[in-house]
Structure formats: C-alpha cells, structure tokens
Amino acid sequence: MAAPGRSHVSCPDGAPTMVEMSIIYAACVAGAIGLLFLLPRRGNRWWPIGAVLGGGALGAGLLALARGPSAGAGVDVFFYLLAFLAVGGAVRMITHPRPVYAALYFILVVVATAGLFVQLAAEFMAFALIIVYAGAILITYLFVIMLAQEAPDDRHPNTLTEYDATAREPVASTIVGFVLLAALLGMMYRGTGAMPAHAQAHAPADVELAVLLGKVESALRKTDLMRRGERVGSVDAAQRTATLISTSPESPRLVPLPADLHVDNVDSVGVSLLNEFPVSLEVAGAILMLAMVGAVVLARKERLDAPHDSQSLIGNAPHDSQSLIGNAPHDSQSLIVGVGGERS
C-alpha cells in the first residue's frame, strides 16, 4: 500500500528530486489513510475502501517503479512481486484481528523476504530465515497463541475478544508512524545520495579459496589432477592454481583448479563468521543458551499447583488460573506481589 508510487526520475547519484519527494509524501498520506480504514474495529464496514486504496497504491506504485526510469537499476520483476507480497502480508498481518492469521501472514512476509534475499545472492540467509523464523519462531508463536487463547464462548465460537477486535489509537499511531517513515526516507535518500553509484571493486572472486583447502582438495580429487598421497599445501586464488605437496621428490607441484570450482554463499558466510567474528559467534551461543534457560525459568509451572492447574494453562477457567498464583487471589492484582506469592 504505502509502497511508493514514485516515478523514479532520480539523478544518477540516487538523490531524489523535489517531485519525487512530493510523491513520497503523497504516498505516505495515502498509505496512512488506507491503513486507517484497514485497522480492526467493531463493525468496520470501510475496510474495502482501505483495501482498494492501500492495495491499489501499492500495486500501482510498484508497477510505476518497474516501468519507470529506474527499471534498469538492476532489479528484476521478482523484486516487485516479492515486495508486493511482503508489504501486503505485513499490512494484513497488523490488520487481521485474529492472532493466528496474523502469524500466518507473517510467515508470508518471511517467505517473501527470503525470496528477496535470494535476489540479493544471500541464499544461505534466505534459507536460514525460513528455517529459523517460519520454522521455529513462528511455530512457537502459534503454540503460545493456542495456549493463551481466551476461553471462547461455546455459543459464539467466532467471537473476538475486545482487545483483538479494536485497534488502539489508530489515528495517532498511524500519523506518527508515517511521519517517522517520511523522516526515515528523507534521511535515507540523503545518505545514499552521498554514496557512489557503485561500490568500490570488491575483492577478486573466489578469494576465500585460499583458506578453503578442504573444498579445493575434494574438488581436485574428483578429477585426476591429484595423485594418491598428495594433499593441498596452498591455493593461489588469483592464479587459480593449487600447490600440492607430498613425500614424493616432485613435490611441491602446481596444478590448475577446476573451472567449475567456485566459492558459494555458504562458504563466504562461514569463512567470514569464523575468521572475522569468532568471539561474537561464541557470545551468540551464550545468548541463546541464556534465553533458553530464562524461558524455562519464566514459563515453568509451580510444582505445588501441578495436579490441579494444568487446564488453566489453556485459559478456559479464569478463576482457576488466578488461583495459580497462590493462596491469595488478590495478589494477582499486583505483578510484584504476585511474583512473591508465586515463589512462596
């Protein structure tokens, strides 16, 4: 929806013109209005207007981008497709009153984002994203959503709770959000406008082969270039040659690398991760460990209440769940006292 319907007539250095900025702001306003109509409320009969306004603006904007002057900017049609999916999924996610659907729309956003990562030659991250987010985190969310669902009314199973059905301060939030968007975009164009149109020539291709001796060796073994008893001593990535060493008299000797031997994304990420950020990697592991312990401590049930309160976890008995806290139901009014009560 808010994806800008801007005709990308920017200067070569990427700085937007005044016309572009005006279009961005107009898109912000249109997006804000569309989102406002879409946000959940009781008896919202105006959502089609929002859908038409937001979706139309989004689609038309993307189309204009694709056909506009920046069509040859190095992005292909998949970008627009995936961007449409991502933004549309995101909007739907925050506007859908039911948490389960919101979570499912979020999976759509994750998948679209993963597609964009593939576009950006970040295949490993694309699949990691799908596995971690769509596979692990979102499933956890779904579990919690199901566990923490309020008791549905048996006679009206589709009744929404009040806090799901109505948005909180939609106008103010939307205005602030889109003002923030305008500010962010302004700064963004300002920043990228100062950057060169193309980055400096990066390191020669496959330079990581110098440290990926095992990969080179296994590739060489598939050919007949490598003899028994030899191993790869070093690799010259620029000359595409490998030095093989052995106990034989002709060692060392140079052999060319196979033409189809390349460093892929996973190799690059792994080399960078282990070569440049080993400490951060360890810290990340520690964080995950702590988060796991913390989650267990926070979410565990009290042993005292174990036989009786298992059902209260799914929330179909409000009074019982209150009694979880301890002997004094009134303690539940206060978080701090409640914690004390729980621990006692």
Partner: peptide, 10 residues
C-alpha cells in the same frame, strides 16, 4: 519514542 525519533530526525 517514535514521535521523538521522527522529530529529532526531521
């Protein structure tokens, strides 16, 4: 927070 951030950015 967002309002403040937007204001500062602007």
């Amino acid at each position: 927070m967002a309002g403040g951030l937007a204001t500062i950015i602007i």
